[in-house]
Amino acid sequence: MSGQGTATAPPDVLTGGETGRRAGPARRRRPRPPTRDSGWWALMLLLPAAAGLAVFEIWPTFQTIYYSFTSWGAFGGHAWSGLENYRTLIADSDVFHAIVNTAIITAITLLAVPLSAVVAALLSLPGMRGVTIYRTLYFLPVVTLPAAVALTWKWLFNGDYGLINWLLSKIGIDGPHWLSDPATAIFAISIVGVWGSIGYNMVIFLSGIRGIPVDYYEAAELDGAGRLAQFFHVTVPLLTPSIFFVTVITVINSLQAFDLIYLMVGQQSPAIERTETLVYLFYQRGFAEHDGGYAAAIGVLLLIATLILTAAQFRLQKRWVHYG
């Protein structure tokens, strides 16, 4: 497990670095911007990005917040309606479903976190061969067109001719119609979520493990810790910042799940209530039913949830994350 660390940790960080730093005490530690009079140049360089973001992202954010307090007529006009949309939102069973569904999808998709930690640890074993090949194969689902992923898994989960039910029949299980059965659709979606997030988590973990000093493993080995003990007592505790990061990313991604639900389940399916998420509802209300005001309120809910999660990440990270 220490092989990767050996390769990347520069030796002078621990020993030679001290003397190096002492030799040049006057050297600036942090780079400071060199020129004072670069205001005009800075403006020119910032202008395209700043103007684009102002028009397409910053102003739209405020506009969506404003729209969430309006009601939209059938022909595009909108009028101030105060908290009306939010009152509907609280009582809306679809929103309630979406939140419950998101929680279930998140909980199952989080199974990918320990799985990918194990994969990353195995790939970091000293002298491990074929790392690049494994990494490529495991990462493939992350980059693949979600629409294609959805159709492929829909075929695998097909109730009559799908590969999964055929495999299950071999061990005597009569598989359900996974995607049209309200009881199973969300599990099918979540399995695809696990499959699709292992590669991303793995890459984050691989770089996290690379940052763990080899000394820790050597010390653990001197104390007689085997590989398994090293994994649980060195790798996992020192990997908590990465574990935290991928957990929050997983929650945010589940919150925003759309493509799989749109393409694998769809509005006509009896299972849609049990699989819809906030973003799916947002699309349905805003663009299929043209109820922009209500969709905006769902968007604001999504925004608040995301901000809370991001804030929670920063807070909790400080409290129970070990930094090596």
């Binding site: 739209p60 506009q63 925003q256 973003v279 805003g286 969709a295 968007g299 999504l302 925004l303």
Partner: peptide, 8 residues
């Protein structure tokens, strides 16, 4: 989240 930008 980018969905917040979509309507505008």
């Amino acid at each position: 989240p980018y969905q917040v930008f979509l309507l505008p």
